[in-house]
Amino acid sequence: MIDPRPGLISRRLEGVDEIIAVSSGKGGVGKSIVASTLALHLAEKGHSVGLLDLDFTSPATHVILGIDGLFPEEEYGILPPVAHGIKYMSITFFALDKPAPLRGADVSDAIIELLAITRWGDLDRLVIDLPPGLGDATLDVIRFVEGIRFLVVTTPSKVAYETVRKQLTLLKRLRVPVIGVVENMARKPSDYVSLNVENDGALYLGAIGYDEGLEESIGDEARLKETKFYAEASKLYSTIN
């Protein structure tokens, strides 16, 4: 018995120039807000952009970007709807706002299905928001998505970085290119993260400060773009090519 889907994945992604997975060994460090604002930033720069939310347990990018009332169209597969100029795909279209209690094998199956049937068309950049950790979603995109590069997010906390360090080690072992490490929620100047990242052989991309005003802008794309977070993040994203 052979699964006919994995072979389709590279075909579905052949029109995509660059694929960036936003990831962290640690939860709650700002992956989803980074993935969402990175997609907004790239779109603002005139790129054609897709955003794929692969966090099935707690999808968040649709909440951050205020994406509501859209549904993919079925046409020789499924076409991602466009929100704020971004082609968008998430499990949330299918699970609605209900909890999706999926175990490992189910997560993999659902990811393969989404990757195999979503027709992204031509894109300059596809940003993928991953769940925390080094579990199924992370391992599956590494397994199935050729040419994927990782953007790793951490906070200044030792608790976060120690896990991120393990992730960097794993990515190196799997020969997955790492674009660099973003330090998020920085509250005071410190070189703890930058020194460690360098030591661990990765590129330190810079810090984004803790922004008190961010929460009020969640769900509102226009206001998000006016936050201190977005200004700092955009500056940092411009250094990524």
């Binding site: 499990i91 279209f93 299918f94 999706a100 659902a110 299905e113």
Partner: peptide, 12 residues
């Protein structure tokens, strides 16, 4: 929904 992604059967 289940037709698109059979795993969402766990939701419904």
């Amino acid at each position: 929904a289940i037709h698109f992604i059979p795993e969402v059967a766990h939701v419904y």
